[in-house]
Amino acid sequence: MIQINNLHHSFKNNNQTINVLKDISFNIEWQNFISIVGPSGCGKTTLVNILAGYLKNNGGEIYINNKKINKPGKDRVIINQENDLFEWMTVEENIKFGAKNKENVDKYLEIVGLTNFKDHYPYQISGGMKKKTAIGRALAAEGDFIIMDEPFSSLDYQYREKIHDELLYIWQKTKKTILLITHDIEEAIYLSNKIIVFSDRPATIKETMEINLGYPRNYKIKNSQGFIELKNKIRELI
């Protein structure tokens, strides 16, 4: 289990203390798909940076399997909003970069559906394929926990729907634990089994809700009564 206890963060700007995160506590059970939604600029990325270990928080602790986290590590691979692939490496080399077992690279290429593109450089593939390469690289590290920071916001709507289904397939096949940060409410409901709603800055947890829509899911679910109700409820909270 991943535990986030009383996380607090603020920074100083022109002698003013700006609170970014306030009293954030939640747990993530293994193999869950959790989303955090909240208004833009509410501090979601700050939370990612703290979870990743890039940023030191002012207060609170993070535990993974009761082990306290204080620096970056392979047990929490981040998939960033921007394109973060090494542009001088092919798709295959990117996935191989952090791979725990180099022999498994082919397997991960197949899972993300890029076997035929393994020798392409990032500039030769589409934005969606770049994201899938990043997912492949994260999977190849063979940690249990993957953090995604608004990974699909740069993709167009149709491709996003397609990659959502692929991500659900990958998640169920690999049994990873995923924390998705997003401002796309529909995306959060469609993918997750639990959603945490953040308030505006300083971010606090407004509500935590279970998404009991069952898996596997397909696009039709978006027209269901339950889905629409959840969507409206979250929209009102933000």
Binding site: G53, P72, G73, K74, R76, I78, F86, G98
Partner: peptide, 23 residues
């Protein structure tokens, strides 16, 4: 973003130099 990825993947200094910084 690249040095952060190197941190996350616990990349050794020589590998960082050879595979990231120099290319």
């Amino acid at each position: 973003i690249y040095s952060n990825i190197a941190l996350t993947f616990e990349t050794k200094k020589m590998i960082f130099l050879k595979k990231i910084l120099i290319p």
